[in-house]
Design a protein around this nucleic acid. Structure first.
Length: 561
RNA sequence: UGGGCCGUCGCCAAGCGGUAAGGCACCGGGUUUUGAUCCCGGCAUUCGCAGGUUCGAAUCCUGCCGGCCCAGCCA
């Protein structure tokens, strides 16, 4: 990581840590953890949490564990586990220790018996619906379960039989005995264990017929790992009293503190695992790694550099307010990183044939092009220049729309990037009147030199027609047409998917691009940043994904009218 | 409606009783063989609103208003 990233912006959590350090809490230790459930792929929201947790460990010389919160076997699997590990590493982080909450199942069970012995937990026979009725509502207190006052002996016996697999799913649960009248619903005797007989857990197989719930598991896992600062998102604020209840009532080896921050909301996309799962399951995208997805796998395939994602997370900050970040902020981070790191190349996305009539047929000249305008260290390359070329259709207009237009027009001149100034002498059309070819002439004195006595204000890119390499290029755009899909309660969030989020074109690449390695990123000059797709490319036959366009003030001006 | 939390520029966000950082976006202007990059300049007399405390309030107090979260044997 660069020095620029070294100084992370402060935030309220770092202030808490600074204060704790000043007061000598935790013997000066700082220990965090990133606790994903392996039931889906990581997305940009997780990236924020990863940067926060691992970033704090890095900056304070502390530790950060990766811990899979795997207490719901029916929704989790090892593929997600592996994908998550890969995504964390790709973001540039490495964990101190790797754990599974399931590593603690034995100890978790033991703590549950402790709670029972202390009269602080009981086995409840109410079914799910009854339990809901007994729970009360947001404004009315709940009622005690009729099973609440069972003896310790009976509770212990019943719980052991739950563990032994004697009861069916849903027949009984273990609950904490707290307060059915609490205004905080999480404290109304929350479920600690439920029966999931027959489920095959990806780590523990069929060893357990009962599984612990999130709040219980998470708190104890944090304590067992000696986590000092347990960071989670705002929706768990109400759970903090329960988190602390476990710490107060269990003989755990540490007293972690929980702090909550606002989750990331990004315009023109969705960041909920449920919705992302549906996009994949319903075929709206081609998979978790579809380049339109805000998943880590998706943006990786799209070509976002990990440093750009880290920079973005740094810029959005960490607070308790629940905001909506503009896509422009992410795009800025991506462009900034790519501008500095991506070698330049030329590719024509919408080819229009150009014939330079006064350039010798069969002649192939190698013109030299810098790989980066500001970084000579990136070297240069030769590009074949020939009589017949392709330019982009959008770079020619028979009559200019206004005086600001500085591309090629009939009778006008333009600079071919890295090559000659040409003039368009004639337009060739087919039977239906479409322009199929431009006949041009060139000024042989303008290779690496400005023309004498006149100014040529436009520069366009090109590729040799005889040497260019045809390739599939995928132009990606925002996934949704509106900034906040799902915000309107009476409209299905899927209704605002952008049907043009993927447009595939057949482009012509300069020859040097043919052997570009999978994953490599380039700036196609005047177009945008592109990377070699890591799934569909074949040796010598790259497929390019457009990561993002270049900023385009001309398009902005044109749209303005 | 009970509880928890949040309101500082279009967006994100500093600010922690001494008189509104920064980034993004936007608007000019300059450089440029990418309408990119880069550079220079502009962009909150005011901090949700109303009172109060104070020599002094975005910061403290009170009351409103607006937004988010919670009634899984999900996490």
């Amino acid at each position: 990581m660069s020095n620029k990233e070294a100084a992370a912006a402060s935030n309220f959590i770092r202030q808490v840590i600074d204060e704790d350090l000043r007061n000598g809490r935790n013997d000066g230790r700082v220990a965090t953890r990133f606790p994903p459930e392996p039931n889906g792929y990581l997305h940009l929201g997780h990236a924020k949490s990863i940067c926060l947790n691992f970033g704090i460990a890095r900056d304070y010389g502390g530790t950060c564990n990766l811990r899979f919160d795997d207490t719901n076997p029916e929704k989790e699997n090892v593929d997600f586990v592996e994908a998550i590990k890969q995504d964390v590493r790709w973001l540039g982080f490495d964990w101190t220790d790797l754990f599974f909450a399931s590593d603690y199942f034995d100890r978790l069970y033991g703590f549950a018996e402790d709670l029972i012995r202390a009269g602080k937990a009981y086995v409840c026979d109410l079914d799910a619906e009854q339990m809901r009725e007994y729970r009360g509502t947001l404004t009315e207190a709940g009622r005690d379960s009729p099973y609440r006052e069972r003896s310790v002996e009976e509770n212990l016996d019943l719980f052991r039989r739950m563990r032994a697999g004697e009861f069916g799913n849903g027949e009984r649960v273990l609950r904490a005995k707290i307060d059915m009248a609490s205004p905080n619903i999480n404290l109304r005797d929350p479920t600690l264990y439920r029966i999931r007989r027959g489920a095959v857990h990806h780590q523990t197989g069929e060893a357990w017929p009962i599984y612990p719930m999130y709040d219980y598991t998470h708190t104890i896992s944090d304590a067992l790992e000696g986590i000092t600062h347990s960071l989670c998102t705002l929706e768990f604020e109400d759970h903090r009293p329960l988190y602390n209840w476990f710490l107060d009532n269990l003989d755990v080896p540490a007293q972690p503190r929980q702090y909550e921050f606002g989750r990331l909301n990004l315009e023109y996309t969705v960041l909920s695992k449920r919705k992302l799962t549906e996009l994949v399951a319903e075929g709206h995208v081609q998979g978790w790694d579809d380049p339109r997805m805000p998943t880590i796998a998706g943006i990786r395939r799209r070509g976002f550099p990990p440093a750009a994602v880290r920079d973005f997370c740094e810029r959005i900050g960490v607070t308790k307010s629940d905001g909506m970040v503009e896509m422009a902020l992410l795009e800025n981070s991506v462009r900034e990183e790519l501008d500095a790191s991506a070698p330049r190349a030329m590719a024509v996305l919408d080819p229009l044939r150009v014939v330079i009539d006064d350039y010798p047929e069969g002649r192939v000249e190698s013109v030299t092009a810098a790989n980066h305008p500001k970084d000579e260290g990136m070297g240069s390359r030769g590009i074949p220049f020939t009589r017949e070329l392709y330019i982009d259709r959008g770079d020619f207009m028979e009559v200019p729309p206004n005086s600001k237009f500085k591309r090629l027009v009939l009778g006008g001149e333009v600079r071919l990037r890295n090559a000659y100034v040409i003039r368009c002498d004639r337009v060739v059309r087919n039977e239906t009147g479409d322009i199929v070819e431009l006949r041009c002439s060139h000024d042989s004195a303008t290779l690496g030199a400005n023309p004498e006595g006149r100014k040529v204000k436009g520069v366009i890119h090109w590729v040799s027609a005889s040497h260019g390499v045809p390739a599939e290029v995928r132009l990606y755009d925002r996934l949704f047409n509106i900034p906040n899909p799902g915000a309107a309660k009476d409209r299905d969030w899927r209704a605002d998917l952008n049907p043009e989020s993927l447009v595939t074109v057949q482009a012509v690449l300069e020859p040097s691009l043919a052997e570009a390695p999978v994953g490599s990123r380039f700036q196609f000059e005047r177009e945008g940043y592109f990377c070699v797709d890591n799934v569909d490319s074949a040796p010598g036959r790259p497929v390019f994904n457009r990561t993002i366009t270049l900023r385009d003030t001309w398009a902005k001006l044109a749209a303005r009218g």
